[in-house]
């Protein structure tokens, strides 16, 4: 399963702007936002700003890097296939 990332800026109403759209087979499945230094020790982590379909989560996780985020998204997408 291959994901495609596309850098964007998201208007979160905060200093958190650097973001990535995450696509699977041309479909947008998630929006990841990199946390700014206003989040203290979580600065630089990636936050699941939005997830679509099986990637939606009421308790959205933080990821230490984009590889970890993509692995989690891939797992979520695979869960619905089985």
């Amino acid at each position: 399963m291959t994901l495609r990332l596309q850098p964007v800026k998201v208007a979160t109403g905060s200093d958190d702007q650097e973001s990535q759209l995450v696509f699977k087979d041309g479909f947008l499945v998630a929006v990841l936002v990199c946390l700014s230094d206003s989040h203290g020790s979580d600065v630089g982590k990636w936050f699941l700003e939005a997830g679509f379909g099986p990637v939606d989560d009421p308790d959205p996780p933080l990821f230490s890097d984009l590889d970890e985020a993509q692995a989690w998204i891939t797992t979520q997408l695979a869960l619905t296939v089985s």
Binding site: G13, S14, L35, H39, F47
Partner: peptide, 12 residues
């Protein structure tokens, strides 16, 4: 909310 959103709201 997530703690990320709480952080943003308090800042706002």
């Amino acid at each position: 909310l997530s703690s990320v959103h709480v952080n943003r709201s308090l800042a706002s």
